[in-house]
Write a protein that binds this DNA or RNA. Structure first.
Lengths: 336, 336
DNA sequence: ATGAAAGCGCTAACAG
DNA sequence: CTGTTAGCGCTTTCAT
C-alpha cells in the first residue's frame, strides 16, 4: 500500500504538503503542487479513508438504514436519496436490518452508525420506548411511519391525508363496500394505523360506518400478501366493491387476485394503491395510486440531515422537526 | 464519546485488558472480565470501528457495488446477498454507481473500496480495457455480464443457455416471428450480446434465420423501455408473434404494451422474460421467465469472496474463477 | 493474567 | 509557503 510518506519522499517534500495538495488546500506553490501530483500519479497513491476518518471524525458517507428491499418503494427511495446525497458531496450506503428487532438494534448502535457522518433510518419494529435511552453519536433523520420520540428528527408523508383522499374517491364513485388491505387497529401510530385512520375519516365524511370485516391486516407489504388477502376476503365475503391497498406492492397482488377471480377492474371492483412507484404505469389495468410527494420527501430528508451535520457541535441547532410532506391522488385505469 | 481508556479507568485495568474482554479473547480472569463488562455497560461503551479498522486493516463490511436499483432484479440480489453475508459474519453495504463511467471508476477506486473487507461489483459501462491497470487492494468478485479481464474472479449466469431455452420454447410452440427486446450486436460479451447469442442459436437449431428487424436494442432495461419498444415494433411491423425480453422489467412493459394494442397473450403473442423475480407471479397474465439460478449465484459469489478474504496475504490462492450458474425456464401464463 | 510501548495513516495546530 | 509535533482509538508485540 502506498502511503502519504511514500509520496512525500518521492516528491522531496513533507507529508503535510502532500496532504495539502491532495485535499486541494491553498497555500502550496504551483511548482511544489506539480511535483506532488506527479509523485501521486507515478506511485498510484490513493488516500486512506479509514485513517483520514479516524483523524477527522468524518467519513464522507451517509447511511440509509432500511428493513429490506422488498417491494419497489424502498428501491426507488434509495435511488432518489443516493442521487441527492451525491449532490451534497456524500456517498450513500444502504444497510439492511431485515426488519427484526435485533437487526434494527444492531444497525442503530454507535458501533455501526459511526461508519457514517449522518444516517437516514427507517425502523419498523422498534417502539419509541426502545429508543428513549438511545444515544446517537451522529446526526440521524428518521423516516417512515414508525413513531419515534419527539427529540429526534422525523420526516414522513401525509399518511392520513393520502388515505383519506383515496378512500373518498372510491366512496365518491359509487363504491360502498371498500376494503383496506394492510389496515390496522388505529391504536398506534404505525403505517397501518395511520392509513386506516384516513380510511375511516373518509367514511365519516359521508356518514358511512366502517365494517371491521373489510379491514384486513397483513404480516408484510409484499405482493403475495395482497394476493392472498383479496382471495381470502372474497371467500369470506364477496360483497366488497373496492380495495384500497396501503402499498403499491400489495395492490399489484390484489389486481392479480381479482384477475384470478374473474372480476373486472374497475367495473366490478375499484383498486387504489399507495406510493405511486414507476410500476403503477405498467400494471394491467394501470394502477391508481396515492403519490406521497416522493420528491419533496427526498429533499426534506437531505435538507434536515445537512443542517444537522453542519450544525453538529455548533450550538443553537434547531429543535427536532417532524416534517410531513403532502400527498395527492394519481388516477389511472383501476378506478372509475 | 466513550473510549476504551475510559472503560479501563472505570474498571481499574489497562486498555489492553478491556480490548481482550471486548473481543472475547482468552486469558482474562473471570473476575476482571466481570468488572470490565460492568464498566462497559455502565458507560455505554461501543468499540470504535474506524480505529479498529485502521489498526487491523479489517472492517467487517462487504460492499455491493451496483449501477442502481431500477427494476426488481438488483433489489432481490441485494436482499439475498445481505442475508447470506450476515451468515458469514459480514455486513453488506450497498453502493450505487449510477451506471456512469465516472461513477464506476470512483466506486472501484481504492479510496472507496477500502471501506470494505471485500466487494462484489457489477459494472455496466467500463470495458476490460479500462480495468487492465486496475490495482485492487481488497478481494473483489465481479458479477453481471460486463466482461472483465481474466485475472479477476467473475460469477455470472448462463445467459446464452437461458436465452436459447426461452427462444426454443417460443419457436417450439408455433411462433415464427420472435422479437428480442434488449438484444444486441453479438460483437461484445455484454448482457445484450450474450442473450442475443442464445436467441440466435435457438433459431439455428430449427433452421430459421434471424430477422434483424426483430432484434430491438434499448438504452436501459426498465419497464418503460419494454413498453416503448413493443409499441414501436408494432407500428413498424406488426407481424411478430412472440417477444423474448432480456429482463422481467422489460417484459412487464411489453405486457402492458400488448394490452394497449389489444393483443392477447399468449394467444396472439407469447412473452418470456429473464430473471424470474417474485413479481413474475403477479403480472396479468403471469409471466413465464428464465430462472437464472439466483440461489446458486448468491452462494457462489459469497463462497468465492470468503475464499479470497481468508486467503488474502496467504500464498497459494487459487487462480481466478469464472463461474457460470445454470439457468432453467419457468413457464406461466404468458406462453402456450 | 495483565500491562507498557509502539504505531496503523492521516491531519490540526503551530512554528519557521 | 513548508515542516514539525502530536495524537485520533485501537491492537500487536513483548515484557512482567
Amino acid at each position: 500500500m502506498v502511503r502519504m510518506v511514500d509520496v512525500a519522499r518521492q516528491a522531496g517534500v513533507s507529508p503535510m504538503t502532500v496532504s495539502n495538495v491532495v485535499n486541494g488546500r491553498p497555500g502550496v506553490s504551483p511548482g511544489t503542487r506539480a511535483r506532488v501530483l506527479a509523485a501521486v500519479a507515478e506511485l498510484g497513491y490513493e488516500v486512506n479513508a479509514t485513517a483520514r476518518s479516524l483523524r477527522t471524525g468524518r467519513t464522507g458517507a451517509v447511511g440509509l438504514v432500511l428493513p429490506d428491499l422488498e417491494g419497489p418503494y424502498h428501491a426507488h427511495l434509495f435511488n432518489r436519496l443516493a442521487a441527492g446525497a451525491e449532490s451534497h458531496g456524500w456517498h450513500l450506503l444502504l444497510q439492511r436490518t431485515g426488519g427484526s428487532r435485533e437487526g434494527e438494534l444492531a444497525a442503530i448502535s454507535p458501533a455501526h452508525l459511526r461508519r457514517f457522518e449522518g444516517a437516514i433510518v427507517n425502523l419498523v419494529r422498534l417502539r419509541p420506548a426502545d429508543l428513549t435511552r438511545l444515544r446517537l453519536e451522529i446526526p440521524v433523520v428518521f423516516i417512515g411511519e414508525s413513531p419515534v420520540p419527539r427529540r429526534f428528527d422525523h420526516v414522513m408523508m401525509d399518511n392520513v391525508g393520502g388515505s383519506r383522499a383515496a378512500t373518498s374517491r372510491l366512496l365518491g364513485t359509487g363504491s360502498r363496500r371498500v376494503a383496506i388491505v394492510g389496515g390496522g387497529h388505529e391504536d398506534t401510530d404505525d403505517m397501518a394505523s395511520l392509513r386506516t385512520r384516513g380510511y375511516r375519516e373518509a367514511h365519516d365524511d359521508v356518514g358511512l360506518a366502517v365494517d371491521p370485516g373489510l379491514v384486513i391486516e397483513v404480516p408484510s407489504y409484499s405482493s403475495d400478501q395482497g394476493h392472498r388477502a383479496v382471495l381470502a376476503l372474497h371467500e369470506r365475503d364477496p360483497s366488497f366493491d373496492a380495495v384500497f391497498c396501503v402499498t403499491d406492492a400489495l395492490a399489484m397482488g390484489a389486481l392479480r387476485a381479482l384477475a384470478d377471480l374473474g372480476l373486472r377492474v374497475p367495473g366490478d371492483v375499484q383498486v387504489i394503491g399507495f406510493d405511486n412507484g414507476p410500476e403503477a404505469e405498467f400494471t394491467v389495468p394501470r394502477l391508481s395510486s396515492v403519490e406521497p410527494g416522493n420528491e419533496a420527501i427526498t429533499d426534506q430528508i437531505l435538507a434536515v440531515l445537512q443542517q444537522r451535520i453542519r450544525a453538529d457541535g455548533a450550538g443553537g441547532s434547531r429543535p427536532p422537526a417532524t416534517n410531513t410532506a403532502g400527498a395527492r391522488l394519481v388516477l389511472r385505469e383501476s378506478t372509475r
